[in-house]
């Protein structure tokens, strides 16, 4: 099954005939539907596990109750009330979900700082190199760096555009080759550990 779908999708890339397009569109739609079914399934398993916690009065059940309340509220708002402007669904998203998400995202500022601090304890020459480049690029991007003359910004730009891009290309080429090899092995059934199987 994996092989059939794999080779069919690989071959259609080279088939300009409209039938190839039809096959491509159909399979893509199936994938979309399967992911969608998975998402609803995920929501159901999520609700089930919290229901079990609440009904068993297990540790933290009160939080599970909160989670269930939030889930039910959102589902009811979206499935009954609709998702257009002015609905409860969008109000909840804009005033609760989105700010919470943005705040978690903004935690990154603190984490970046602590990660940088960790990086300062450069353990070896590689880490030192990473740190120096990071500093140059940072300084090159802010006005203080520019005040020291064009050298720092120019160096920063060169580091980003030339050696960094070269290394990135090297990484990408490796990833490309690795991806093709894994995909081929999976299609041929040589590698089945993704479903726990062994040859």
């Amino acid at each position: 099954m994996v092989g059939v779908f794999g080779f069919a999708m690989l071959i259609q890339y080279f088939v300009p005939h409209p039938l190839g397009r039809v096959l491509y569109g159909r399979v893509l739609e199936w994938m979309q539907v399967i992911f969608a079914a998975g998402l609803v399934l995920g929501g159901a398993t999520y609700a089930m596990s919290h229901l079990r916690t609440v009904s068993g009065r297990r540790e933290g059940w009160i939080y599970s109750l909160l989670a269930l309340a939030a889930l039910t509220l959102m589902l009811a708002a979206g499935l009954i009330g609709g998702i257009d402007r002015g609905t409860l669904f969008l109000w909840l998203f804009n005033n609760l979900q989105a700010p919470l998400q943005q705040t978690v995202f903004s935690l990154l500022a603190f984490f970046v700082a602590s990660a940088a601090y960790r990086g300062f304890r450069a353990r070896n020459i590689d880490a030192a190199l990473l740190l120096i480049v990071a500093l140059v690029v940072m300084l090159g991007r802010i006005p203080i760096g520019e005040m020291t003359g064009p050298f720092l910004p120019d160096l920063a730009r060169w580091l980003v555009d030339v050696p960094a891009v070269a290394a990135k290309r090297g990484i990408l080429i490796g990833i490309g080759l690795g991806s093709v090899a894994v995909a081929l092995r999976v299609m041929l059934g040589i590698e089945r550990a993704w479903l726990g199987g062994r040859r």
């Binding site: 970046v112 990660a115 940088a116 960790r118 990086g119 990473l130 990071a134 990135k168 990484i171 990408l172 490796g174 990833i175 080759l177 690795g178 991806s179 090899a181 894994v182």
Partner: peptide, 24 residues
């Protein structure tokens, strides 16, 4: 394989597999 995140993992984790090493 996320090139941008590699740097952060490298600084915060004990070991980091870079790109193709994940496939290997």
């Amino acid at each position: 394989d996320s090139t941008i995140q590699l740097a952060f993992f490298l600084v915060t984790c004990d070991y980091t597999l870079i790109g193709e090493e994940v496939f290997a």
